[in-house]
C-alpha cells in the first residue's frame, strides 16, 4: 500500500482527542442553529403509554402517577417526556399525581408542572397534585402502602396539605384507581414498581428511561410487566408528536382533542420549524435533528477508526 496512505492513517489514528471534541460540538450546534423538519416515527412502546393515559380522559375515577427518580443530570432526556405527559393530562382532563424520591428531583417536578400548566386552567389539589419529595428509604413502604390507601401512604402533599382532604382524591383510593404509574429514571428504578406495585397489586407500570436503560428493559416490555416505555430522547419526541396530533388537536368535530388512530399518526407530519408548536413542546424533536447528525458522525468515527486500524495493522503484519 502507498506509504503516504499508511502514514496518513497512522497520523489520524493518533490525532489529539480535542479535535474529535470540536467535531462533536459542531455536529450538535449546527443542526440546533438551523432546525429542519424531519419525520418522527412513533413506535409501539410510546404509543401504548399514550393510549393508556388517553383512556382515562375525563374519567373521575382514574388517575396517573408520575414518579420522578432522577436529578438534573438526565433532564435533557426525561424532562420533555414529563412535560408531554403533563400536557396530555391537562389537555384531556386526566387526574395526575407527581411524586419524587430524591431531593434534587423536587424542583424538577415543580419546573415540569409550571412549564405545562401555564397554558391550562388547572388547579393544584383538584386537577393535579404534587405529593412532593419523599425520601428514597421510604420508597418501598410508600409504594406498597399506596396499594391499600394512597392518602394514608403519602400523608401530605408538597404544600403540606393533608392529601385525604383534597378534592382530587375523590374516587381515588389505591392502584385500582391510580391505575398507571410512569416512573422517570436514569436507572432501573421501574423494576421496583414492577416487583412491588405490579406483582402485588396489579398496577400498570410504564417507564420513562434514559436511552442507557432501554435495551435492558425489553424483557419486561415483552412480558407486559412494563405496559410501555419512553426510550430516551426519541421516546420524548414521539410523545410530543402524539400529543400534538391527537390530544391538542382542535376542530369542530373534535373540540377537545381527537382519539388515537394509527393511520392519522402515520400520515401526519407536524412541522417543527416556525411557530405552530411552542418551543417547549417540540424541544425533543428539535434535539432529535442534532441526534441524527451526531449519530452519523460517531458512526463515521467508528468506520474511520477501523479502516485506520486495519490499514496500519496490515503494515505491521
Amino acid at each position: 500500500m502507498n506509504k503516504n496512505v499508511i502514514s496518513f492513517f497512522n497520523k489520524i489514528q493518533n490525532i489529539d482527542r480535542r479535535y474529535i471534541y470540536i467535531v462533536v460540538a459542531f455536529s450538535i450546534i449546527i443542526p440546533l442553529l438551523i432546525p429542519f423538519n424531519s419525520r418522527t416515527y412513533v413506535t409501539k412502546p410510546t404509543e401504548d403509554i399514550y393510549k393508556k393515559v388517553d383512556s382515562f380522559a375525563g374519567d373521575e375515577n382514574k388517575a396517573v402517577l408520575m414518579s420522578f427518580t432522577h436529578d438534573a443530570s438526565t433532564m435533557p432526556e426525561l424532562f420533555p417526556m414529563e412535560v408531554s405527559v403533563l400536557r396530555h393530562c391537562f389537555e384531556r382532563n386526566i387526574k395526575v399525581f407527581t411524586i419524587c424520591w430524591i431531593p434534587a428531583a423536587a424542583p424538577l417536578v415543580d419546573y415540569a408542572l409550571n412549564t405545562a400548566r401555564e397554558d391550562f386552567d388547572v388547579q393544584s389539589g383538584v386537577d393535579y397534585c404534587n405529593f412532593g419529595y419523599k425520601p428514597y428509604v421510604l420508597r418501598l413502604p410508600i409504594m406498597l402502602g399506596m396499594g391499600d390507601d394512597i392518602a394514608k401512604a403519602v400523608e401530605t402533599d408538597s404544600q403540606g396539605r393533608k392529601v385525604e382532604n383534597l378534592e382530587i382524591m375523590k374516587n381515588i383510593k389505591n392502584y385500582d384507581d391510580m391505575n398507571l404509574v410512569i416512573d422517570f429514571a436514569a436507572s432501573g428504578s421501574a423494576l421496583q414498581w414492577i416487583t412491588y406495585a405490579r406483582a402485588r397489586f396489579g398496577a400498570n407500570i410504564a417507564a420513562g428511561v434514559t436511552a442507557v436503560m432501554v435495551a435492558d428493559n425489553y424483557p419486561y416490555l415483552q412480558t407486559g410487566q412494563l405496559m410501555g416505555m419512553f426510550r430516551g430522547l426519541k421516546g420524548a419526541a414521539e410523545y410530543e408528536k402524539l400529543v400534538d396530533v391527537f390530544a391538542a388537536y382542535e376542530s369542530e368535530d373534535y373540540p377537545n382533542g381527537r382519539p388515537f388512530s394509527k393511520e392519522v399518526i402515520k400520515e401526519t407530519r407536524v412541522p417543527i420549524t416556525g411557530d405552530t408548536v411552542p418551543y417547549k413542546y417540540k424541544k425533543a424533536r428539535i434535539g432529535m435533528n442534532a441526534q441524527s447528525v451526531a449519530h452519523i458522525m460517531i458512526i463515521f468515527f467508528i468506520l474511520l477508526g477501523n479502516i485506520g486500524y486495519f490499514i496500519t495493522r496490515k503494515k505491521e503484519l
Binding site: 435533557p76 432526556e77 434514559t210 430516551g232 434535539g287 442534532a290
Partner: peptide, 28 residues
C-alpha cells in the same frame, strides 16, 4: 446497549447546548 448508550450521552449534550444557544445566547 452500546448503541443506546451513545444515544443517551449525545442527548445530554444536546440539552446543554440547547441551554447555551437558547436560554443564554437567545439564538434558538
Amino acid at each position: 446497549s452500546f448503541g443506546y448508550t451513545v444515544m443517551a450521552r449525545v442527548s445530554l449534550l444536546i440539552g446543554r447546548i440547547q441551554f447555551l444557544l437558547g436560554d443564554w445566547l437567545g439564538l434558538v
